[in-house]
Write a protein that binds this DNA or RNA. Structure first.
Length: 172
DNA sequence: TGCCTGATGTTCT
DNA sequence: GAACATCAGGCAC
């Protein structure tokens, strides 16, 4: 569960879809070595990696590897648990339909109020974005594994994971 | 319901 | 100067 504390209240989102990226992976930002932008991905796990893409969208990742290894998990979609009004307000346009609030990486970042890369490289925590265990355990058998979405390289690597039957998953 | 396309700017070659 | 871990709106069916 992702948690964001704001002065207007708490947002809690249950993660329902992720993708893995690694430095040996041609589709990863870290494939061609470390740059200023991707430096956080080479830190030890437990930090945030936020990047800006397509001229208008931010995407949120959780850095996962050992220090020196460029590795992270992209959070692609989530289910709102708390702070729905805040989420709608952050999303603005196109926020009428519940399932379209957070069913994609750009939408998810917008729902959390991420509108810069300021958080990139920061540690996970209550003053940034926090990560907590799910309220109830997830049955591993309900996690579907497929190839990733929206990439043009290494399309066959089955590194996308989502919760079977969840309405907030970005794409079947 | 599903394809097609424009918006928009950072990053790296 | 091209590519890009995307989204929403428009149009055809």
């Amino acid at each position: 569960v992702l948690e964001k504390h704001t002065d207007r209240g708490l947002i809690r989102l249950k993660i329902v879809e992720t993708e893995a990226y690694h430095q040996d992976d041609p589709a990863s930002h870290t494939y061609n070595g470390q740059t200023l932008r991707t430096a956080p991905m080479f830190e030890a796990g437990g930090r945030l990696y936020v990047y800006f893409t397509y001229g208008m969208h931010y995407c949120l990742n959780i850095v996962t590897g050992r220090k020196g290894v460029g590795e992270a998990v992209l959070i692609r979609a989530a289910e709102p648990l708390e702070g729905l009004e805040l989420i709608r307000s952050n999303r603005g346009r196109g926020s009428d339909e519940l399932t379209s609030l957070t069913n994609g990486p750009g939408k998810l970042a917008q729902a959390l109020g991420i509108n810069s890369t300021n958080l990139s490289g920061k540690l996970i925590g209550p003053t940034t974005i926090d990560l907590q265990p799910a309220d109830s355990p997830v049955n591993p058998k309900k996690i579907i594994v497929t190839s990733r979405v929206g990439i043009t390289k290494a399309m066959d690597n089955p590194w996308r994971f989502y919760l079977a039957g969840n309405k907030f998953v970005s794409k079947l």
